[in-house]
C-alpha cells in the first residue's frame, strides 16, 4: 500500500496534489499489468476506470470507415489513459490495447466519482488536471485533422 502511495504521488499527473486528496485517490487505486497485445478496454464497454501508465505503451484504435482498425493515438510512460469514466454515460469510445508489457495504476472511476461528489474541492482539482489533458489531446487531434504533411491541391 505504501508502495502504491509513492507511485501515485510521484506520477506527473498528481504533481503538487494536496496530501489529503492523494489519500482519497489512493483509496481507489490498484496496480495492474497487461501483456503485449492484451485488450485493456473496448469501445462500447462500460468505463469505470482510468489508468496512469507507468511503463509500456498503449494504442488507442477506432474502427474506421472501410479501413479496418485505425490507431489514432499511442500513450506511453507517465501518460493518462481514459477519461470516459468522468463523462456520462460512462462508455469507452475507443479500443485500448497494450503494445508491449504495460504496468499501470488503475483508478476506480466509480469510487472516484462518488468521492468527488462528496468533496467538490477534490472534484475540482481532479477536473482541472483532466481538462489540461483533454485540451492537449484536442489540440493534437486538431493538428492531426489538418493533415499537415499531406498535399493540398
Amino acid at each position: 500500500m505504501e508502495d502504491l502511495e509513492k507511485i501515485v504521488s510521484q506520477h506527473p499527473f498528481f504533481e503538487g496534489m494536496d496530501k489529503n486528496y492523494l489519500e482519497l485517490i489512493i483509496g481507489c487505486a490498484s496496480n495492474v499489468r497487461f501483456d503485449e497485445g492484451q485488450q485493456i478496454f473496448k469501445e462500447g464497454e462500460e468505463a469505470n476506470r482510468f489508468y496512469m501508465i507507468r511503463e509500456g505503451s498503449v494504442a488507442l484504435a477506432i474502427h474506421g470507415p472501410g479501413s479496418g482498425n485505425v490507431t489514432i493515438d499511442t500513450l506511453g510512460d507517465g501518460e493518462i489513459l481514459g477519461w470516459s469514466w468522468l463523462v456520462p454515460p460512462y462508455y469507452w469510445r475507443f479500443d485500448a490495447k497494450a503494445k508491449d508489457r504495460v504496468r499501470a495504476i488503475a483508478l476506480d472511476g466509480k469510487c472516484l466519482r462518488d468521492k468527488c461528489e462528496e468533496n467538490h474541492d477534490l472534484g475540482y482539482e481532479l477536473l482541472k488536471r483532466f481538462s489540461h489533458i483533454i485540451d492537449q489531446r484536442l489540440q493534437a487531434t486538431r493538428l492531426q485533422l489538418l493533415d499537415v504533411y499531406g498535399l493540398r491541391t
Binding site: 484504435a61 490507431t71 499511442t74 503494445k99 493534437a140
Partner: peptide, 18 residues
C-alpha cells in the same frame, strides 16, 4: 510517430510534438 496507422504499426501514433 505518425498521424494515424493501421493496428499493425508498432510505433508511436500522434503528432510529433508528443
Amino acid at each position: 510517430t505518425v498521424d494515424s496507422a493501421d493496428t499493425d504499426w508498432q510505433g508511436h501514433v500522434g503528432i510529433v510534438t508528443k
